[in-house]
Every structure is written in C-alpha cells, then in structure tokens.
Amino acid sequence: MLSEVTATRYVTPLREGGSLPGIVEADDLGTYVMKFTGAGQGRKTLVAEVICGELARGLGLRVPELVTIELDPVIGLGEPDQEVQELLKASGGLNLGMDYLPGSIGFDPLAYEVDPAEAGRVVWFDALINNVDRSWRNPNLLVWHGDLWLIDHGATMIWQHNWPTAASAAAKPYNASDHVLAPFGPDIAAAAADLAPLVTEELLTEVAAQVPAEWLVDEPGFESADALRRAYVEALLPRAATIHERITLGAPTRDRPSQAPGWLADRLTPQPRTTGRTAQAPADAAQVDRRPQHDEDGGK
C-alpha cells in the first residue's frame, strides 16, 4: 500500500486547472501536492492517478512519489478563500498526495530536447493508459534536475467512467498527433519491445492493490473493491500487447480546439489568474504556480 501521512498545514492552492489541488505539509515533514476527494472530478481521478502513476514507476518512468494523506477538515477553518475552504471541508479523510519537486519547471518543447527513445517510452505509456491530457496544449511534464517527470494522470483510462463498455473502449487506438513529445520522433517500436513484456498480470495486480478500498466502494456492477481492481487489470493487460500497432502520429491539430471528451473540457481549460492568497505562496510554490496549464506536481 501507499505510505500514509497526515496533513498538518495547508500552504496554498494551485490555481491552474480545474481540480484546485493544493500544496500541503505533512507530519513526515514532507511537502506534497494534494488532490482532493471532494474535488469536482471525484475519486475516480485519484484512482487513475494511483494506478497510472504506480504503473509508470514499475516501468521505469519518473513519477513523483505518491502517498495517501489523511485530512482533518478543521485544517480549513482559517482558510480565507471560500472555495478552498469548502473543498477542504468536503475532503475529510483519505486524499492523494504527490511529492513536491522544489525548483521543477514546466516542460517546454522549444527549450528542452528529448531523445526518440525516451519520447517513445512516454508516448507508448500514454497510449496504454489512453492519456488525453499530455498534449502540446497541456504537457503535464516537469523538468527536474535535467530529467523529465510525468505528472497528472487523472484524465486517463476513460473506460472507467462507463464499465459496461470498458472492453470496447480499451481496445480503441490512440491518436498521438497532438502529444507534446510527438515532434521528437518517438521510437514507438523500441518502447513497445522494452515495456510491453513488463506489463504483466502480476505487475498490474500489484499496482491496482495500491488503491485504497474506500475509493473503490459502491461502483455499480462490482460486488467488492477487489472485483473492481480486477477490472482495471483486465482492461490494461491485453492493451499493452498490441497498442503500439494502433498509435497514430500525424499532423498536430494546432488550428482546432482540443479533441478531448466533452466531460474534460473544463478540466483542460486554463483557469484565470487570481490575486491574494496565491500571491503569498512560498518561493517554490510560486514557481509551480507559474507553470503553464499544469494542475499538479510533487516533491519534498
């Protein structure tokens, strides 16, 4: 299971993105970017964060450490921002934290070169999890100590939002034309040869077991949390074997709006800047807040 910590101080919200994550300090003296069960996207985005984040880690990709964070709603009583206060009050109990990477910067494809091998591994992984949220519009990549780090996997595995059609949805191809790493000539074949054999039933079962049971309860059609965990395994396992054959790399749709599903429209739309609380963030938090169209990262 993921390590569990307790939030001791809410530092500042991250205003870009729709879920309003926040930087918090915890009783292990760590600093985390926290995503809340009470946010509008719901607990399924946290499930996706855990499964995809831990799967990426198992495949050797860089992802900030994930933890569960116990939140006492009393922590929000002194919060002056009404929206943030309501979010904290609605998120009592277990939430998700990502290790905050101090000094990290948002990935800029014009300023940072990625070799075809690494680009291929990231694109292949995003195809596996059907990530619609790592495009040139919203890279969800950080550069930290010169390395690429993958963040924000809440908008993945779209099939989890309609389990009766999950098998057909998981079998669909992946259009990587708008992927932020598409211009770097991703070597998909090499990535598939290296990574697909690693996506075993054992690895997926281990990854799914990291999801707290309380985030999996009351899902229609499933009698237990373990049954739902099994559904994630069964969707991803066959996809890993053949998805490289169904990845499209064409011209990016720079003259059209995002082709993401409609339910993601608000989430993928950058939110307007605000003043006040955010402007008083610590130096590192302010740096994160300047990242274009990111809504999370992590680090101690």
Rank of each mutant, 00 (worst) to 15 (best):
V211Y: 01
A286P: 06
D81T: 08
G146N: 06
P292L: 15
A281Q: 03
E214T: 09
V217T: 09
E234K: 10
R229C: 02
T274Y: 10
F36T: 05
S258D: 11
D126E: 12
R291A: 15
L150F: 09
G120R: 01
A119D: 02
L101M: 09
D72E: 01
D218W: 06
D255H: 08
L181G: 04
S104G: 15
M98W: 02
D126K: 04
S3A: 15
Q259K: 14
L71C: 08
L237Q: 07
T31N: 07
L2H: 07
P173F: 03
G42M: 05
Q271I: 01
W144G: 11
A167H: 09
W149S: 03
V123M: 09
L204Q: 00
L71W: 00
P139R: 03
L198G: 10
L101Y: 04
L66V: 08
P282G: 02
K44S: 13
L66E: 05
E49H: 05
A155V: 00
Q82H: 13
Q82K: 14
V132F: 12
T274M: 13
W215N: 00
A231F: 02
L88S: 04
A209Y: 02
I23F: 11
D295Y: 12
Y100W: 12
F222L: 03
P272M: 02
A171I: 00
A7N: 06
L198Y: 06
Y112A: 09
T31F: 09
A285P: 06
T242S: 13
E83C: 08
A225V: 07
M98C: 14
R134K: 10
G146Y: 05
R290G: 13
D218I: 07
E206R: 13
R254E: 10
V143A: 01
L20R: 08
A190W: 04
P139L: 06
L88I: 12
D99H: 15
V143L: 11
A166L: 04
T200M: 03
I105K: 14
S177P: 07
T278I: 12
D226Y: 00
Y232M: 10
T45W: 01
G221E: 03
D27G: 03
W136V: 11
L228N: 04
P257T: 08
R134M: 06
E86R: 14
T274S: 15
W124Q: 01
E79W: 07
A265K: 13
D255W: 05
P64I: 06
Q293K: 14
A285M: 00
G276Y: 01
M1A: 15
G42E: 08
L55H: 01
Y232R: 05
L20F: 10
P252D: 09
R9E: 13
A240M: 08
H294F: 12
D108E: 09
K44D: 15
M98F: 13
E65R: 11
H179S: 05
G106A: 11
A56F: 05
L228K: 03
R15G: 12
A260M: 04
D115R: 09
R256K: 15
T248W: 12
D152G: 04
L110T: 14
R267N: 11
I129F: 11
Y232G: 03
T248A: 13
K44C: 12
D187S: 05
D133K: 06
P13I: 06
P252Q: 06
G38D: 04
P220E: 07
I247F: 03
L236A: 04
P197V: 06
R277E: 15
P139N: 01
W163I: 02
A192P: 02
G120A: 05
P261A: 02
D72A: 10
T31H: 10
A285I: 06
D295A: 12
V180E: 00
